[in-house]
Design a binder for these strands. Sequence first.
DNA 1: TTGACAAACAGGATTCAATACTATATAGTA
DNA 2: TACTATATAGTATTGAATCCTGTTTGTCAA
Lengths: 172, 172
Amino acid sequence: MQVKNYIERKNLEKKLHLFKNTCHKNHLKITPQRVTIYKKLISSQEHPSATDIHRKIKNIFPDISLNTINTNLLAFNKIGLINVVEGSGDAKRFDVNLDPHHHFRCLDCNKIIDFYNKDFENIKIAEELIEEFTITDKKLHLEGICDRCKSGYAWFGEDVDNVNYGRSKKRR
Amino acid sequence: MQVKNYIERKNLEKKLHLFKNTCHKNHLKITPQRVTIYKKLISSQEHPSATDIHRKIKNIFPDISLNTINTNLLAFNKIGLINVVEGSGDAKRFDVNLDPHHHFRCLDCNKIIDFYNKDFENIKIAEELIEEFTITDKKLHLEGICDRCKSGYAWFGEDVDNVNYGRSKKRR
DNA sequence: TTGACAAACAGGATTCAATACTATATAGTA
DNA sequence: TACTATATAGTATTGAATCCTGTTTGTCAA
Ligand SMILES: [Mn+2]
Ligand SMILES: [Mn+2]
Ligand SMILES: [Zn+2]
Ligand SMILES: [Zn+2]
């Protein structure tokens, strides 16, 4: 347990180091807000929207504006620190996981979950498609109901901190 | 050519028949607006947004409201006549093609193009995923640059009728 | 064919995400 | 420490989507 925590701490440090380096290279200043936004991205598995992050981060910076979140997320995306993932007409969702991977989206709670699939790399894409288009990304996309929603164990009940009080679909 | 037109006309009639049948079963009245919206969906390969359809259909019903389009698209979706596809934080995109298929999205013009891949059906999804989640949909998603954008042959120049004049990303 | 009624329509209001704009604050550095 | 380019907060604007309401229209039964 001690060892695991040590490894995770080292891992976080490594990511933060890379983050600061990349910001520096791209003339982005290291501000407390910026670092906090990135940390929130790292610590979340849920592919949060800008609003999700805004809500979370208000505990730390009560006056931070949604605009700052949006601006920074777009900046991070531009310099390759994060990706935008398909949300389904909802708000944009952001992905700090840069390893090649795929997504499962729960139709009920709208959570997006990473998974990996080695076999997929070998899948044949028709020649005509490859000739016609320049393909820069190739992903598997699953939809359905996640274990939590399946078991009737609702999205609330834990970490109230992450709850979306808005009109839009519930999200964890 | 005569024969081809005949077949296409027959095909359209068949789809419209199914459409009216399904509406009827679901207590949706057959109105000229409703039929026209569905026809526009059938005749478009581009996975249009509600606004796209609204713009097109104004030629026929100058006073039709965007609300009518949205309400009807959601109604069609509810009774299984169309699907909603992932837009990427943009407006929802609608898909009248009910056959199992996959999508390529152009990062430049935002066009979504259907393609088919038989090999994909056999792809192995990890046991643990299947146990954890109820998977209702499994799709391939490609991104990149379409032939038209690749060749520098811009999205405009043809069918001005379909052009998006809005602030959001250009679309064909 | 007509009349009654439930459903659909147009149009306006509201909500929310996203972007634009700007005055003030601050990180980086000389 | 002081200078300057960038970031931030806060406000305004745009657009998608939903809600609401009064009027119109398709459907079905008489
Ligand atoms: Mn991911
Ligand atoms: Mn499609
Ligand atoms: Zn779920
Ligand atoms: Zn294109």
